[in-house]
Design a protein around this nucleic acid. Structure first.
Lengths: 172, 172
DNA sequence: CACCGAATGAGATTGAGTCTCATGCAGGAG
DNA sequence: CTCCTGCATGAGACTCAATCTCATTCGGTG
């Protein structure tokens, strides 16, 4: 059920707390441009197209999905350029890598969002985002106790939703 | 400093709360044997050697390190067998995958240990284990609120230890 | 508008992890 | 103890995500 099955990830609340409306896209764009300039890099049409595609991805995505999205919208950006741009977007703090499994890398838009933690139902591979201020507070306290200063974290809770069990119970 | 540098992971407390002494190795061995038998599988010399090598690894390790360890001790176990055995050990609950980065898989012995959470100093790549009952409690509560039942979790806190800054401050 | 250096794309390359298959071995039946 | 069945092993082929190479193409500054 778990190991060999292809990873299909569905994100339950469709980017619920993302900034709504398309007018919010401009800020990200200029943030990215500013970041690039600061690094002595250039804003190109390819990079803009990748950022645009990232913007339309709901929740967690893989590079291959991003490539599909780009192809769908008729844009021709090479795999290499997408990987390179993803790296820059990560450094700019616009997207973030999400550690879900060790097979492929997953990313998510973080600009304008607060959620960065996930629960994954191991029965149906459903992914649920959450954001917990208590978790942040706990993180700060734990680090302070160790003499460190927290700068971020990744949390993934494995859980069972009971749907499968309920279904099995009903048919039994 | 971060992206291209080879990942050298040092585990600060050298398996501090692991069961001490070698007499504790026997139980794991028989647990594994029982697990294998239950699955209709067999305990072989190769599997025992892999388990033995895993037992001597302090903290988090990669497959390649495990292969090195096996070679050092003169054992000749193929890469394929090591990967296969790692899978079985994971299913048996003796080791656990640790999500640290998306490059290679990391594992850790979990039998007889409580720690499963990590802080990573992004300045010197030091990895510090911790175990927090409060985190478990929070995890349970968050899941309950979502109508789920928690079965496990992975947490990785990124932090700075200030050593680098202190050193820089002293030399400045 | 010319130039320089960064950016791109196609394809080669890497490397972790998996698969194949001929051979080997564990361990229960007799 | 020996045989036999079928799981286990090892060498190497294979897969596939990710990276690298390098000739060509642009961006944008002077």
């Amino acid at each position: 059920m778990s190991s060999t099955a292809p990873q299909r990830l569905s994100l339950t609340p469709p980017a619920a707390d993302a900034i709504s409306g398309n007018e919010a896209f401009e800020p990200v764009c200029s943030i990215f441009r500013r970041f690039l300039t600061k690094q002595g890099l250039r804003m190109t049409t390819e990079r803009a197209e990748v950022l645009d595609a990232v913007w339309t991805m709901d929740g967690v995505f893989e590079i291959e999905q991003l490539l599909d999205r780009l192809r769908e919208s008729g844009h021709r950006v090479s795999r290499a350029t997408v990987y390179r741009t993803i790296k820059h977007l990560t450094e700019a703090g616009i997207i973030q890598e999400v550690l879900l499994d060790s097979k492929t890398s997953h990313y998510q838009l973080v600009y304008g969002r607060k959620t960065q933690d996930y629960m994954m139902c191991i029965e149906d591979d459903r992914l649920i985002e959450f954001h917990s201020p208590e978790l942040i507070a706990l993180r700060e306290r734990l680090c302070r106790e160790m003499g460190l200063e927290a700068v971020g974290h990744r949390m993934l809770i494995y859980a069972v939703c009971g749907r499968a069990r309920k279904a099995a119970g009903e048919e039994a």
